[in-house]
């Protein structure tokens, strides 16, 4: 057990997976000697060779398409897209091929691939480097969409994603790549996919979030505790398919729900969760479901990005309002 950052935990999981399984291949731009722009693949090429850790040409569509071809051949490719803003050329491959080759070939060909990409804003990066368009991906049948919120879950969930027999988009919360530190044991044990994690138990209000936003959400829970409001915090972790049971169970207990995500509101994944609660748990609600999200605008560049993203204050206010609703 040692303390490490989230990005170090990613690196550890990649190394572990490559060590355990010769079919695991890492590919992407600058993932080789440079170790990736965030250092997530640091040291891997030296250790596993340039055939298994390969620098691709600068072509994102290619990276995702190569993964499909390699995976159909039984390899376990892990593609890296440098920033989520550069993922969009891969959408064709994800929608038309990765997510459905198993179904359209009736199980003859499969696609055990992982596509990793940094997710979210808050690091004062240039334009197009701060996207959080996970809802687009979660809309694709046949895909898994996973996002960790701590080093421990980054390690365990990435191992699970790599071992999963179906394609997984693995979103990595850029803002807490280094800010999040925690104890990780390199024991090769995966955490379950499709399962939400209850990070904190509470009775009065359920706060649901994922990725880097859990940081503000947990801070909001601390602040609410001071006011005597106990918040249950749920880390959704897998967005597709997501853990309806944990969501509904928590809301049944608290009767109040605030969903927090930094992605824009309209059509965001919070809308899906709110709809689920409305359909299945309306009578347990003591207050309207609230969404604290990014605004419906283009993610601004560095000078304004903080104003776009949900703050601890906005979350606390929404939770307090839910608790005062009558």
């Amino acid at each position: 057990m040692s303390e490490m950052t989230l990005v170090e935990a990613i690196n550890l999981a990649l190394a572990r997976a490559m060590e355990d399984d010769p079919d695991v291949i890492v590919l992407g731009e600058d993932v080789g000697i440079n170790g990736g722009v965030f250092r997530a693949t640091a040291g891997l090429q030296t250790r596993f060779g340039s055939e298994r850790v390969l620098d691709t040409p600068l072509a994102e569509l290619l990276i995702s398409g190569l993964c499909v071809g390699m995976a159909a051949q039984g390899l376990k490719p892990i593609g890296e897209i440098q920033f989520m803003g550069f993922l969009y050329p891969c959408i064709d491959q994800l929608v038309n091929h990765a997510s459905r080759i198993r179904n359209r070939s009736q199980g003859r060909l499969t696609c055990p691939m992982v596509l990793r990409t940094p997710h979210g804003a808050g690091i004062r990066a240039p334009e197009h480097h701060s996207e959080s368009t996970e809802a687009m991906l979660a809309h694709i049948p046949g895909l898994r969409v996973v996002i960790p919120s701590s080093p421990e879950r980054a390690y365990g969930l990435l191992l699970a994603a790599i071992r999963d027999p179906d394609p997984v988009v693995f979103l990595e919360p850029t803002r807490i790549y280094r800010a999040a530190k925690g104890e990780v044991e390199d024991n090769g044990e995966a955490l379950p996919l499709d399962v939400a994690f209850v990070l904190r138990e509470g009775r009065d209000v359920t706060l649901i979030s994922w990725g880097a936003m859990l940081k503000e959400t947990m801070a909001a829970a601390d602040a609410l505790a001071v006011e005597g409001i106990t918040a249950e915090v749920v880390d959704l972790a897998t967005l597709k398919p997501y853990d309806e049971v944990t969501v509904l169970g928590s809301v049944a207990k608290t009767g109040r729900c605030v969903i927090v995500h930094e992605a824009t509101r309209t059509g965001g994944f919070g809308a899906e969760i709110a709809a689920l609660i409305a359909e299945r748990s309306l009578t347990s609600l003591l207050a309207p479901v609230a969404r604290i999200t990014g605004y419906d605008t283009v993610i601004p560049m560095a000078r304004l990005e903080q104003h776009m993203m949900p703050s601890v204050g906005r979350i606390v206010t929404a939770a307090r309002k839910a608790c005062q609703f009558s």
Partner: peptide, 15 residues
Amino acid sequence: SQAPHAAGVGYAFKL
């Protein structure tokens, strides 16, 4: 869109 798959398949053969 199958051309990148062909390259991936070819890479697997070579590997």
